[in-house]
């Protein structure tokens, strides 16, 4: 039983990270109908920035995370401005292909600059906490709590502020948003900034648990896409719930079936859910 609860905690840690990445993809998809295939690689960049800020520049953990989030916010905005905005009036497939191009570009750049080595970031929080008989490292608690705080913050921003609600307005009715005077370009820019910032935060939180390497974004990316298909494309609650479902499924199947099969479990789950609900858990009604 103790093992089971231990795996629940591990699943929540994984799920927190997946959800933050999936949220970014779903936000961008919601307003631009663009599946940003490069998102996992923004996550990877976020991990590297945090890693180097700590190991090379001697920042402590939290300032390094803040710096990494800020850097990725800028990179996300540059991507929107330089790559995706010029393609706005082009056929839809062009921006999808561009996002694959960005993905390859980021990964190749990372390999060239930093090599293909696996790097390890030591957690400043490597103590363990006893919680109801479970031993949990402090870092894992930090991941879960920070992710929840970020999700609550994002939700408040989207629901309670006028600027935040322009993102939802554009996702719910694009032309309706234009006709009340919302500037599409500003909203796209802001959405890319938020999504990239969330990816950097997720990567920085996970960096002390996982390893940092140039292709680390690929699997996270694939999982995040599984999550938003599973949760319903463009759905915010779907991304959060989907993230935790996938995280828990992986950690539990990895323990009780075989850890070799944990990635398989994710995709088996996807196939199963899409068989039962082809449009995803929180699909928007057809408009």
């Amino acid at each position: 039983m103790e093992l089971f609860f231990q795996q629940i905690v591990n699943g929540l840690v994984l799920g927190s990270i997946y959800s933050l990445v999936a949220l970014g993809i779903t936000l961008i998809y919601g307003i631009m109908q663009l599946p940003n295939f490069a998102h996992g690689h923004l996550y990877m960049l976020g991990a590297y920035v945090t890693f180097f800020m700590i190991t090379h520049y001697g920042l402590s953990y939290w300032p390094a995370i803040l710096f990494s989030v800020a850097a990725l916010v800028v990179i996300g905005m540059l991507l929107e401005r330089l790559v995706f905005r010029p393609l706005h009036h082009a056929p839809h497939i062009n921006s999808m292909i561009a996002s694959i191009g960005v993905m390859l570009f980021i990964e190749a750049t990372a390999r060239k600059m930093w090599g293909s080595d696996y790097r390890r970031l030591d957690s400043p929080y490597d103590g363990v906490i006893d919680l109801f008989g479970l031993t949990i490292t402090e870092q894992r608690i930090i991941v879960i709590l920070s992710a929840i705080a970020l999700m609550i913050g994002l939700n408040l921003f989207l629901k309670r502020t006028v600027i935040g609600s322009t993102i939802e307005a554009m996702a719910q009715n694009r032309e309706g948003a234009f006709l009340v005077g919302i500037n599409a370009n500003k909203v796209s820019l802001m959405t890319f900034a938020i999504a990239s910032g969330l990816a950097a935060a997720a990567a920085s939180l996970a960096a002390p648990i996982n390893l940092v390497y140039p292709s680390m974004g690929a699997m996270v990316n694939l999982k995040a896409f599984v999550i938003i298909v599973l949760g319903g494309m463009g759905s915010i609650p779907g991304a959060v719930l989907g993230g935790y479902i996938l995280g828990l499924a992986e950690s539990i199947s990895g323990t009780y079936i075989n850890s070799e099969y944990k990635d398989l479990a994710a995709f088996a789950l996807l196939v199963f859910i899409l068989t039962v609900r082809p449009t995803g858990l929180f699909a928007k009604e057809a408009r």
Partner: peptide, 30 residues
């Protein structure tokens, strides 16, 4: 379109184009 709205021309379009999942008040605020 947003610049034209700021200039003072506002359209109530065919098919309404509301924000269906937002409250009436939120639609009005936007």
């Amino acid at each position: 379109p947003d610049r034209i709205v700021k200039a003072g021309i506002v359209q109530c379009p065919e098919g309404r184009k509301l924000f269906p999942e937002m409250s009436v008040l939120k639609n009005l605020t936007l």
